[in-house]
Structure formats: structure tokens, C-alpha cells
């Protein structure tokens, strides 16, 4: 049976080293399958995180051959180079142990920006149509699974501790375009300084496993935040 040469990051906190494992290569094998094989048959002390295994929960993101990926939906055949896999923890987040990172900084930025739906007091006067421009802009970014792959891919996050990151800003953009939300101005204010720290490298869009384009969302935020700075009312009905 063909074997994979797998290197996995082992260690606690900032300290650690790559450790090699030989894992049987199987058809339709995912990177998460490889990690699970190591933990079940080779080294039960390996720490990693997963839940749904079908690309919904956003728990299993890791760095695979230097690129952040959702491991449950990444086939070995696509990620391996010459039968080699190097699997590490996500970048830009503190490592707890081995492949498990502390997601707290990621979600704290989410919380601090209040990037959540705030119901309006009254329902929208006009029904929300699926094909209206604002709804389409919101729908384009709505399928985020909070996996932090974009956060790990982003150089601006690495360079700038104040930067909220692509996922938070993408969420703010979907909220700003949701006519049922009651605090559009608040969402744009929250995006205010943060969205201008994006350098438009599009690493987030390149890495996003669900195919979202946070860079485009952030570009939209930059435009709307500037429109507000000019003193004009942002587009769309207010509550």
C-alpha cells in the first residue's frame, strides 16, 4: 500500500517541532482522515479539533503544506505534494497544543465589532426581494462557517493586531446590506477604521473554503464608510 510521508506539528504554546508519521494512502482520503489515523493508530496524544466532518462547523481548519484549509473537505490527492503532507496549526492564532489553536482572539474581534444581526424595531416597509441589489450583496457573503481560514491566510492580520480580519468585516458587510437589520450605521461605524487596514491582497478570497470573497466585501465597506464620512446618507432604507 502506498504510504504518505506526514509531518505534524507537535508541541504546546509557542514551543514545538515537526514529527514524522507514515500513514497509508487511501482512495478519497481527506487530510482530516490522515490526522485521525495518526491519533487513533500511531499517537493518541495528538491534539486536534473537528466536529461535523462535512464542511459545516468550521472546527477542523489547519495549515496544510503551508496553506490554511478546511481539512475535512480537502482531499489528500489535492493537497499532498509528492506524497508529502505537512500539517500544522493555523497561523495568526495562539497554539494551545499540536494542531489545536485558541480561537478566542478571532471571536473576540467578532464580538467587539458587534458583528451580529440586530433586529429592527419595525419590519421593513417593503418585502425583501431575493433579487434586490442589497439582498444579493448580503447573500454573496452569508455562507461563512467561522473557520478562521481567512484569518490565518491574511497578512494584514499578521502585521496589524488592530485589524479585525476578513471574516468579521465580511459579516459586517452582509449586515449593512440586510434591510431587516436595525443598526446599519452602527455596523458601518464598527467597520470604520478597521476596513482601511485591508491591503486587498485577496489572500482571504483565495483561501476561503466556501468560496466567499471577503476582499470584495471589505471594498464595499471602504466605499460606504467614505460615503458616510462625506456626510451623505448611506444607501438603503433606515429604521
Amino acid at each position: 500500500m502506498a504510504m504518505l510521508e506526514v509531518e505534524i506539528w507537535r508541541g504546546e504554546g509557542g514551543d514545538g517541532a515537526w514529527r514524522r508519521y507514515a500513514v497509508p494512502h487511501e482512495a478519497n482520503q481527506t487530510v482530516l482522515d490522515v490526522v485521525t489515523h495518526v491519533q487513533r493508530y500511531l499517537d493518541p496524544s495528538l491534539a486536534y479539533r473537528f466536529a461535523c466532518r462535512v464542511g459545516m462547523c468550521g472546527s477542523c481548519a489547519m495549515s496544510v503544506n503551508g496553506r490554511p484549509r478546511w481539512t475535512c473537505r480537502t482531499h489528500v490527492s489535492r493537497a499532498a505534494r509528492k506524497g508529502r503532507l505537512r500539517i500544522g496549526p493555523l497561523r495568526n492564532l495562539p497554539v494551545i497544543r499540536d494542531l489545536a489553536v485558541d480561537m478566542a482572539p478571532f471571536f473576540e474581534k467578532w464580538r467587539d465589532a458587534e458583528a451580529r444581526f440586530i433586529p429592527s424595531k419595525e419590519p421593513p416597509e417593503e418585502p425583501v426581494r431575493p433579487d434586490e441589489p442589497e439582498r444579493m450583496a448580503a447573500d454573496a457573503g452569508i455562507e461563512c462557517i467561522n473557520c478562521a481560514v481567512c484569518y490565518a491566510a491574511c497578512d494584514s492580520v499578521a502585521w496589524n493586531p488592530d485589524y479585525p480580519g476578513p471574516a468579521v468585516l465580511n459579516r459586517l458587510w452582509t449586515l449593512a446590506n440586510d434591510r431587516r437589520d436595525g443598526d446599519r450605521d452602527g455596523h458601518l461605524d464598527a467597520a470604520g477604521a478597521g476596513c482601511h487596514l485591508c491591503r486587498s491582497h485577496q489572500e482571504c478570497a483565495d483561501a476561503c473554503p466556501t468560496g466567499l470573497n471577503p476582499t470584495a466585501a471589505i471594498a464595499g465597506l471602504k466605499r460606504e464608510v467614505f460615503r458616510r464620512a462625506l456626510g451623505g446618507r448611506a444607501r438603503g432604507p433606515r429604521q
Binding site: 477604521a193 482601511h196 487596514l197 471602504k222 467614505f226 464620512a229
Partner: peptide, 9 residues
């Protein structure tokens, strides 16, 4: 300095 104005400038 207002980041939105710097961005526009």
C-alpha cells in the same frame, strides 16, 4: 487622522 479620508486621498 480619519482613515476614511486618508483612504480617499
Amino acid at each position: 487622522m480619519n482613515e476614511a479620508w486618508l483612504f480617499a486621498a
